[in-house]
């Protein structure tokens, strides 16, 4: 860790944060927010949190930015300045921010120094995970083993959160089917104006590699940074790329709305189902070690490893499908006619 670099990135982050909330153009704000996320990603790599950085790169900088851009594109770029009338709200905001800030500052004095190897956080639970991950689960990536096994229950609900979000967006935005058909018949090719052969060609060539890489990230998550989330988001991003470079009809032709939601559903179901199978086999919920009874040629430790791969696959399916669904609905305001 190089603290000068650290400090530099942190100050850039603060600058970006200030810029993104103060620019008057929402599109710029979205882009600056993307930059902010990338800087975050750098910061975390620099602090050794590679998995977090990977996720932030794909989810925060990637999907979030796309969603922001899509939303801004669908609404308006302009922010009206009404500074004069809103003293009261600004006062409340300042008061809340300073009071929360003050309370937080009061706590910092008691914290152990930054990156102190003797801090409670580094000495209480984490040594167990670090020293036992191989003996318990045979997974060298400690983050993966903690994520998918020691705290697999968290992760299951995290997947459920994503699924719920996808469903929520559909519930809020999606319009009735008849309306959709009606409108899409009128406007057949909506992204005509954006047609660009080079982009389309490059995008088309990139998609298979992206998907391959996504599968690699997923499969190799046990040994290197990555896993279900990152893989799933990249997989989803490849579909979004199609939608952006071509149009939404092409995407929906390959992956209909119904399949989209069903896949998201199946992904979570794979996760919860594996947990439930453990329960049916007589162990506790999500206790993969029992799976050695039904998996050929595995002992209890490898069963955990395989179980994790199984649920990571579920996560990847769910996340990729839901990311696409989020994009499709937000970019088209729920009408499924055109994208960006």
């Amino acid at each position: 860790m190089i603290w000068q670099l650290d400090l530099l990135i942190l100050s850039l982050i603060v600058l970006c944060a200030l810029a993104t909330i103060s620019v008057k153009d929402l599109f710029s704000a979205a882009i600056i927010f993307g930059a902010y996320s990338f800087l975050m990603c750098l910061l975390w790599t620099e602090m050794g949190a590679v998995d977090v950085a990977f996720t932030e790169a794909s989810v925060g900088a990637g999907v979030s930015t796309v969603l922001f851009v899509a939303a801004v594109f669908r609404t308006t770029r302009k922010v009206k300045d009404r500074g004069v009338k809103r003293y009261w709200t600004k006062g409340v905001g300042l008061l809340a921010a300073t009071s929360v800030g003050g309370v937080l500052i009061a706590a910092v004095g008691d914290f152990p120094g930054f990156a102190d190897p003797l801090s409670p956080a580094s000495t209480h639970l984490s040594p167990y995970f670090i020293t036992n991950t191989l003996t318990d689960t045979a997974v060298p990536n400690i983050v993966t083993s903690v994520l998918a096994d020691y705290r697999g229950y968290d992760t299951m609900f995290e997947t459920a959160v994503i699924f719920a979000a996808g469903l929520a967006v559909i519930a809020i935005l999606r319009r009735s089917k008849t309306g959709v058909q009606h409108e899409s018949r009128e406007k057949v090719i909506l992204s005509e104006g954006y047609e660009d052969t080079i982009i389309r060609l490059v995008a088309r060539k990139m998609v298979p590699f992206m998907q391959l890489f996504a599968l690699y990230v997923l499969a190799h998550g046990h040994h290197s940074p990555g896993g279900g989330f990152q893989g799933g988001v990249i997989l989803g991003a490849s579909f979004i790329l199609i939608a952006i470079s071509y149009d939404m009809k092409m995407l929906l032709g390959r992956m209909s709305e119904k399949w989209n939601v069903l896949l998201g559903n199946i992904g979570v179901l794979v996760y919860a189902g594996i947990g439930f199978v453990c329960l049916l086999l007589g162990a506790n919920f999500l206790d993969y070690s029992i799976l050695h009874r039904i998996l050929p040629a595995t002992d209890e430790i490898m069963a955990r490893s395989h179980g994790m791969l199984g649920i990571e696959t579920g996560v990847a399916i769910a996340v990729s499908a839901i990311v696409v669904s989020l994009y499709v609905n937000i970019a088209s305001q729920g009408k499924h006619d055109k994208g960006l």
Partner: peptide, 13 residues
């Protein structure tokens, strides 16, 4: 007490 994933607290949930 019910250990999810069979892990003893405080490691597991």
């Amino acid at each position: 007490h019910y250990r999810l994933g069979g892990w003893a607290p405080p490691m597991g949930i």
